[in-house]
Design a protein around this nucleic acid. Sequence first.
DNA 1: TGCGTTACGCACTTTCAGGTGCCTACTTCC
DNA 2: GGAAGTAGGCACCTGAAAGTGCGTAACGCA
Lengths: 141, 141
Amino acid sequence: MTATTATQRTAVATAGYDAFMAICPSQKLLDRISGKWVALILAALGSGPDCAGDPRPMRYSELSRLLAGISQKMLTQTLRSLERDGLVSRTVTPTVPVTVSYELTDLGLSLHQMMRGLKAWAETHMDEVFVNRATYENTTA
Amino acid sequence: MTATTATQRTAVATAGYDAFMAICPSQKLLDRISGKWVALILAALGSGPDCAGDPRPMRYSELSRLLAGISQKMLTQTLRSLERDGLVSRTVTPTVPVTVSYELTDLGLSLHQMMRGLKAWAETHMDEVFVNRATYENTTA
DNA sequence: TGCGTTACGCACTTTCAGGTGCCTACTTCC
DNA sequence: GGAAGTAGGCACCTGAAAGTGCGTAACGCA
């Protein structure tokens, strides 16, 4: 007997889907990289300050200057979370005032490679998206 | 004369960086795909309901059933924004109650291809990220 | 005749990522 | 001796994304 209502069936399906969403790797990856500053930090550490060189370690203050506009809080917070996930490594050098440098790990480097694919798509197709968006808004409004 | 303080220099740099961030294609792309339901809808339309087939149009109610857990509001809202950006096309068929079907455009299809790269990275590397995260938290706490 | 389905619209509310401002301890330069 | 740099910590606040709940118009079915 199919004595379940559509509402009940939906509720069951919802529970299962929630569980799936909670572990879905793609979703998790998007959460991870969609932070406002994550991509910029990865790009800086992965391509140097000019965004066109090779990966190299950078100091906290250097990142802070390069990513002008980021607050100290957000820089610290984002770097911490990236370190926690094994994407960057933190190195403290006990100099006059302590200097701290951050560098991409192998994992972070591989992520950076993937981000370059994303960047390539963005640079070739986002213009088209914007045109569509503008057209749509002129057509409907 | 360098009569500017570090604070002033930072303010100027911040303004320039804000302008850059406002147009950076990669950043815009991330904004576009990082919505909670965007990736799921693209995956559904791009790989069929079983997430392993070919792209095919789907009806509103079909998507709603497949992506159990999404509210009707969010489904409509997300589909509209994707349509606005030229990533999906909306087709209304005036049947008994009107039926509406959504399909990936060429642009949406190309985005879906890129997302598969992202998915591949996620499936091979996210486990490592989670391990690092767990280790980090056990080490510090 | 009253309930279900289809594809939404609208208003209200919650949530949290991100921003702002203020604090630190140490040191060095002017 | 006051300003500035270095690498942050802490508390509060806001705006936008997402969730919740209710209404719709047309029809079909029992």
